[in-house]
Every structure is written in structure tokens, then in C-alpha cells.
């Protein structure tokens, strides 16, 4: 088990290095010049060269990448005569825009997506599997038809529509919720919950449909298995047949997809939701960084998202080994 984990983590590190290299090269393939952008409208050639030097853009690509990589283990100091920025290892670089170390930015934004993603994911998983279970056990009846058609409506809605609609209803019209914002959980649990309720609801509407249909079909498939017939032949109550025998087997394919969805939500895919509700998360940071040609932040957010996916992949595989005794990790 331990050796398996070590091997997976090593592979993960290699993947992240490759992704960082690709991001690096892609960034310089873009036509915009970050130094020119930082220089402003009245820019003299000497000032441009100064900025280029300060940002380290005058060095060769390989050197720049090497310095970025070295920064993960050794402290770096940036700056010209006027300002110096110190960046402690592990250093992911310093933002071209705000002169803040990238890691500080990421650590500041990360709790937003962690709260947003985890909260929404827990709701859509539990409710989605529940609805799918009801639909599957009432196949062809009214409950099934309602669940399936409701999920069709859900899947065709868009975040910016649902989000704005919810905000209009709950914040403007009925005024029962404050405008969405992020308050740390440790600081004010009630405020945290109230501020994230609408963003969660929006994400849930979008994802719920998918999870309902997924668990419905997975449940139906499992209900047709011979071992479910065996469970009934033993005289077990239907409740137990569904909740124990069927659910346990039907949940396994859902785990994989859920892991990936949760990882990408935490990694910043919820960027539209962040924007609609004015939350400053990783997704918004990434979009801004690309718009502003802010290389270090672009690198940081990309690597963060990739790391989330890679880590959750390992977690999913290990969870599989726990749920399904036929899977042995080696």
C-alpha cells in the first residue's frame, strides 16, 4: 500500500513537471508581451528594457524555466533598484501585476473554491444519488418520470441564468439572503453558509441532473444483477436489498466521476459561478492572469488545478480499493 502510494506520488510529480513545461512554452507562444503591458502607455525603450530585466524576461526560456523550478526549493529575490520582493521556497514566482508571491495568492483564493466546490459536491452527490435511487426503484412510474424530466431541465440550464435568477429572487426580491460573498468558515460559520448558499444551489442545479441520471442507470444495471436476485431470494426486505446490496455496487462507477468533478471544482472550474456571484476564487484568478499576461500566476493556477486532478485521481483509485475487494492496489 505504502509503496503503491509512493509510486503514484512520484508519477504525479512527473506529470506536474510536464504540465508546467507545457504551460511555460505556451505562454511565450502568445503574442502579448508582459513587459510592454506592465510598462504602460508612455513607455520608453530604456524603461521597457528595465522592466524586462526586472521580470527576468531578458533571460533565455530555458534559464527562466530553470529559475522557476529552482524556486520550488530555494528562496528567490526579485526586483530592481526601487522595489525588491523576497519569495520564500517553495516559490512559484511573483505576480507581474501585484508583486505578491504566487503561493500567497493561491493560498488566499484556495479556501473559496474548497468551500464552494466541496459544499456543492456533497449536496449534488447525496441528492443526486438519492433521486437516482428513487427513479430506479420506481422505473416507469411517476416518480421516475418526474426525476428524469427534472434532470433534463436542469442539464439544459446555464450557470449565469440560474445564478442570476436565484440572486434576483432571494437577495433582491424576497431579501431573505445576504448578497453572496465568502466568509471563512472558522471566522463565522453562519455567514460562511449564508454567503455560499446561492452559489452552491446554482452548481447543484447544473450537476444534479447528471448525477441523478448517472446513479439511476447505475442502480438499474445493478438491480438486474444475479446477486440482487440472490439477496431477494434470501428473504431480505427490499429496503435492505436496495440500500445495502444495490447501492454498494452501484456507487463504484459514480465515485470515479465524482472525484474528478470535485477536483476540477476545487481547481477552479467553477469560474463562471465565481464571476456571477463575485467570489474571488482560483478560477477567476486564472482568467485574470491570462488576460494580464501574468506568467507566474498563470503557471501557479494551472499547476494548482492539475495537482488537484492528479491528487484526486490517486484518492479515487485508493477509494476503489476499499469499496471493491476485487481491486488490489499494487
Amino acid at each position: 500500500m505504502f509503496r503503491y502510494l509512493m509510486r503514484r506520488l512520484l508519477a504525479a510529480a512527473v506529470i506536474l513537471v510536464v504540465i508546467s513545461a507545457i504551460t511555460f512554452v505556451t505562454f511565450f507562444a502568445l503574442p502579448t508581451d508582459p513587459a510592454l503591458l506592465a510598462c504602460g502607455k508612455t513607455c520608453s525603450p530604456s524603461r521597457l528594457a528595465e522592466i524586462r530585466h526586472a521580470l527576468g524576461l531578458d533571460k533565455s526560456l530555458a534559464t527562466q524555466y530553470w529559475e522557476f523550478f529552482k524556486g520550488l526549493f530555494v528562496d528567490r529575490t526579485y526586483g530592481d533598484q526601487s522595489i525588491t520582493v523576497h519569495c520564500n521556497a517553495p516559490c512559484l514566482g511573483v505576480s507581474f501585476q501585484s508583486d505578491t508571491p504566487v503561493l500567497t495568492i493561491l493560498l488566499g483564493d484556495f479556501p473559496v473554491d474548497l468551500s464552494l466546490g466541496t459544499g456543492a459536491a456533497v449536496i449534488f452527490l447525496v441528492v443526486g444519488v438519492g433521486l437516482g435511487m428513487v427513479a430506479a426503484t420506481h422505473k416507469g412510474k411517476a416518480a421516475d418520470k418526474v426525476a428524469v424530466s427534472a434532470s433534463l431541465v436542469g442539464v439544459s440550464l446555464q450557470i449565469y441564468f440560474v445564478g442570476l435568477l436565484l440572486m434576483w429572487a432571494f437577495v433582491d426580491k424576497w431579501q431573505i439572503l445576504p448578497a453572496p460573498s465568502y466568509t471563512p468558515l472558522t471566522q463565522d460559520p453562519v455567514g460562511w453558509f449564508q454567503g455560499l448558499l446561492l452559489p452552491w444551489a446554482t452548481l447543484v442545479v447544473i450537476y444534479l441532473a447528471f448525477y441523478t441520471r448517472l446513479s439511476r442507470s447505475s442502480m438499474l444495471e445493478t438491480l438486474g444483477e444475479d446477486y440482487i436476485r440472490t439477496a431477494r431470494a434470501k428473504g431480505l426486505p427490499m429496503r435492505r436489498v436496495i440500500l445495502k446490496h444495490t447501492l454498494r455496487a452501484a456507487i463504484t462507477p459514480i465515485i470515479t466521476i465524482f472525484g474528478m468533478d470535485l477536483a476540477s471544482l476545487i481547481g477552479g472550474t467553477a469560474v463562471i459561478t465565481e464571476s456571477v456571484f463575485g467570489l474571488n476564487g482560483i478560477g477567476k484568478q486564472a482568467v485574470d492572469a491570462v488576460t494580464n499576461s501574468d506568467l507566474p500566476v498563470t503557471m501557479g493556477t494551472t499547476l494548482f488545478a492539475a495537482a488537484a486532478i492528479v491528487v484526486f485521481n490517486i484518492i479515487v483509485d485508493m477509494a476503489y480499493g476499499i469499496v471493491d475487494p476485487r481491486v488490489r492496489l499494487a
Binding site: 444483477e225 444475479d226 436476485r229 431470494a233 428473504g235 475487494p325 476485487r326
Partner: peptide, 21 residues
């Protein structure tokens, strides 16, 4: 209440008839 108690059944393919988990 009768199922499994008074009447029970041996199924054809024991690999698929036993719960794998």
C-alpha cells in the same frame, strides 16, 4: 418470510449470484 427460510434456491452461476463486495 418464507423465502430463504422454507423455500430456497441455488442459482446457476455462483460467481454472479454471490455479491462480489
Amino acid at each position: 418470510a418464507l423465502r430463504g427460510e422454507k423455500v430456497s434456491m441455488i442459482f446457476q452461476d455462483p460467481l454472479s449470484a454471490l455479491h462480489p463486495f
